[in-house]
Amino acid sequence: MGENGFWAKLYKGLTKTRESLADKLSSLFGGAGELDDDFFEELEMILISADIGAVTTERIIEALRDEIKKEKMKTADEAREALVRIITEMMSTSEPYEPKKPTVILIVGVNGVGKTTVIGKLGNLYKSEGLSVMFAAGDTFRAAAVEQLGIWAERVGAPCVKHQEGSDSAAVIFDAVRSAKAKKTDVLICDTAGRLHNKHNLMEELRKINSVIEKEYPEADRQVWLALDATTGQNAVAQAKAFAAVSGINGIVLNKMDGTAKGGIVISICNEMEIPVRYIGVGEGIDDIRPFDATEFCRAMIKTA
């Protein structure tokens, strides 16, 4: 399944909802349409509906107006290309990720964004690239989370370091780091419990987990990735800021992109915090993960392949 197959799948996802903005967009950017007030009003609706946010949308439209004026654009076609450029520019920090040897990836995020599933899919991806992979069942809080990751480990064929439910998450991670070092594992991927970013104690626990990795595995390439649900609205910015504050974030995995949500909030996060989006998740299947590509993301968002 190549890139084409994936984007085709994404487009298919988009077209599934007839009344969704995809159709409105194709009419909006239907070639030689005029760049009048209606055009901008409709564009605003499309961008806001994609969860880009009112303030960022305003900024994008302003930039587009400037560009149209400067380049003396006349048609919607030209404007569309300019729009893709503007948004892609805002996400310029995003680049494909290549794991080094060894790498340790800590997956963090609020409840229900799909952290465990992402770990399963990432593990499979790296394994298929010929790397050795290990999981750490750091979600010791949610009932049966350890079992859930265990099932993924079996599917992927990767070892999984686990303690009992309710045990200390940092201790699990500590053991996993030791084990990964001893076995010379290429990529260690650590699960953590979902936590709302405004819960002080849980966030402090995460700080501790992160410092365990920092201390015990300085030679590894340390990645901390925030898993985001594409369905999330403006609160995602607050999430990114809070997680960055306690554990640092150097990547985002945008999950659940197979629905009708567009995940536009990552534009603000990328732009304001300069955190790259690494991957997007497009389903619950083991292959449903792809490297992020800003231009393609924009095109899919406004459906102009």
């Binding site: 909802t17 609020v110 409840n111 229900g112 369905t231 999330t232 609205g233 949500a261």
Partner: peptide, 28 residues
Amino acid sequence: DAMTGQDAVNVAKAFNDSIGIDGVIVTK
């Protein structure tokens, strides 16, 4: 999920149209 963005209307409408919901629970 209380944190859902603009897509909430699509989700709610689709579920309501296809199975007919009686109420909603907001989580988180």
